[in-house]
């Protein structure tokens, strides 16, 4: 579903990833971990084409990133749900509208949007906050809105960047359960985190990122 072959990426001459190679299979849940600044977010950005590799091949859901034209990038992103580390919520729109946006850009019919968004709101346990604005939510609630937005379009791949960054243990567990459910419906899930508790005992593959490459790969 996701494959990197000898990918190198640098910012302004500074190498972040070097000859990076890995593969995430269809239907997998996998984790990327590593110290702050190791390049986890960069790795995810390469997957959804917010950054381009200097060298190497990246294939996502059958799309070869290097051959992607500007105008086809949106169509790749439609297959990829993203939980951004910095949320990227629209603060002038309600919770409902923030989640609905992921469907509106696909021109989904309003009735279908209402149905799907309400279902997702139930799943992320925010039905009662549908008409509030993000500023009125706690960090954990905002986090769940972002997850709701990433899952509402039923993407083939879900990328989650530090999805439990500022959550307590209980809420983190709720969110991890959510990812498990999303995965059970066939979505491939890739989670970047430095919280080792998230993958302990999951039996899933974990990639340790350090010094521009994979330091080790373990089963969590």
């Amino acid at each position: 579903m996701i494959s990197f072959t000898n990918v190198s990426k640098s910012y302004e001459g500074e190498l972040i990833l070097k000859d990076f190679t890995f593969t995430i299979d269809k239907g997998e849940v996998a984790y990327i971990t590593g110290p702050s600044g190791a390049g986890k977010t960069t790795l995810l950005k390469l997957i959804y084409c917010a950054e381009r590799p200097d060298r190497g091949q990246i294939v996502v859901a059958g799309w070869d990133i290097n051959k992607l034209k500007q105008r086809t990038i949106p169509f790749l992103r439609r297959n990829v749900g993203i939980v951004f580390q910095d949320f990227r919520l629209l603060y002038n729109k309600t919770v409902f509208d923030n989640i609905a946006l992921a469907l509106r850009i696909h021109y989904v019919h309003p009735n279908a949007i209402r149905e799907d968004v309400n279902a997702v709101l139930k799943e992320v346990k925010l039905s009662h906050k549908a008409n509030t604005f993000p500023q009125q939510l706690s960090g954990g609630e905002q986090q769940r809105v972002v997850i709701g937005r990433a899952m509402v379009s039923k993407p083939t791949v879900l990328l989650a960047d530090e999805p439990t960054g500022n959550l307590d243990v209980d809420t983190s567990q709720t969110i991890m359960n959510l990812f498990r459910e999303i995965n059970a419906r066939g979505t491939t899930v890739l989670i970047a985190t430095h919280n080792h508790d998230l993958f302990h005992g999951t039996g899933r593959r974990v990639f340790f990122l350090r010094d521009k490459n994979i330091e080790k790969e373990i089963i969590g």
Partner: peptide, 11 residues
């Protein structure tokens, strides 16, 4: 944000 969510140019 719209771009990252997959909005086309025309959208």
């Amino acid at each position: 944000t719209l771009k990252l969510l997959g909005a086309t140019r025309s959208f």
